[in-house]
Design a binder for these strands. Structure first.
Lengths: 213, 213
DNA sequence: CCTTTTGTGTTGCTATAGCAACCTTTTTTA
DNA sequence: TAAAAAAGGTTGCTATAGCAACACAAAAGG
């Protein structure tokens, strides 16, 4: 359970406080094999999930049935927090285990209403966490609004530059995921990246990018 | 102050509880004339704003300097909640008064740490409110990801249909805002809407739409 | 009431990006 | 280590949507 002390949800809490909360609030742990579905698109859930071990992805399906990866989860990732917060909404994504996963589910309503003093801090952490997610989402919306592939790429790379505080950085998306994130065809992305490299605006190798302007 | 009892932030609280919170938490009221800026894009703010009277809009500017309306606010609208929650982020939007506005600002940190018993309920309301905004944002992202103007329109109208529980409904966006929301040219939107009407898929007049399929 | 502004629809031109198909390189795994 | 699979790059064709420009109707404002 040591991993929980580093979880964003419990930031600022010590072991005893976390234990206190777990004693008060209903929770359960479950394991999943690779490929198994943890949350299905359309499910209504009432728990916050914490990935204790393993890797998972959030997918969704377009109206045409094409599959899109919308998020990648590593140990200590939190999911279902936004969903549980918006009572009555159903999950827009399917969460699927990639490797053997161990997931801790914490009942959301009980967490909200628990009167352990530390829950107050947890609520703040939830708010902070959701807000951060909201801003990432927002940034993506801004990028998706741009009309040309090039402007999308530039906007994305600028963003990453500002996050990494450097003209040179690695991104954690491969070309397919990057194309999905920008809302363009993978081939169109490759084409434009090559063009930009040829023009000397950027340089890149695999997922390592450098801005040259 | 009667209007606050109907505010989503104070849902489930009675007058005395709201008063209690306001007594504990620093807040202030300010008026704005039409056209005046309430929050500037890039500002870092530490308060939740509640529009007590008047109308305002949230705008943002594209890299090319084009102005886009991203939200419309009526009395009792809440703004700055997500922003205050994500400590260290700066406002992605400019909030501007359209008519004479009266705004109540409530200090966010104090609201979080206040120990009036009712604040706990307020935190839950904040979470619910942010979560809802997140889902709207999410829906928009889904729509922006679609490639053709027609599929965007259909996806948007389906969504509105499900919200209104009817094949016939009014939307609260004019063509310009609708085009912005869908991330397409206004002319392209008009063209496609006309085409769809001609094909008998939909009918519309102004902002009143009917799905015919 | 007349004028101005705003909202909406229409259309021709054209660049761009989607699509499909194929190739090359790298990584995985049997 | 050979074979298979995954990731990335390239390219031709073509429909589509962006852009610009204009027309018309409705609403707002003085």
């Amino acid at each position: 359970m040591k991993i929980l002390t580093e979880n964003l949800l419990f930031q600022g809490l010590d072991n005893t406080e976390i234990q206190q909360i777990l004693n008060t609030v209903r929770h359960n742990e479950r394991s999943y094999s690779p490929g198994e579905t943890i949350v299905r698109q359309g499910d209504i859930i009432d728990s916050i999930g914490i990935l204790l071990a393993g890797n998972a992805v959030g997918k969704k399906y377009t109206p045409e049935g094409e599959e899109i990866i919308v998020s990648q989860m590593a140990p200590n990732s939190i999911f279902g927090d936004v969903l549980s917060g918006a009572i009555g909404f159903s999950s827009p994504v399917t969460v699927q285990a990639l490797k053997n996963c161990r997931v801790l589910f914490i009942n959301y309503q009980q967490l909200l209403f628990a009167d352990a003093p530390a829950t107050h801090k947890v609520l703040q952490n939830i708010i902070q966490n959701i807000s951060r997610k909201y801003f990432t989402q927002n940034k993506r919306t801004d990028i998706l609004m741009l009309k040309s592939v090039r402007s999308k790429i530039l906007s994305y790379l600028e963003w990453q530059k500002s996050i990494n505080n450097s003209n040179s950085f690695s991104i954690n998306l491969d070309r397919r995921l990057m194309a999905d994130f920008l809302g363009v065809e993978r081939s169109a992305l490759s084409r434009e990246l090559s063009r930009m490299k040829k023009e000397g605006i950027i340089d890149f190798h695999k997922n390592k990018f450098t801005l040259l302007y």
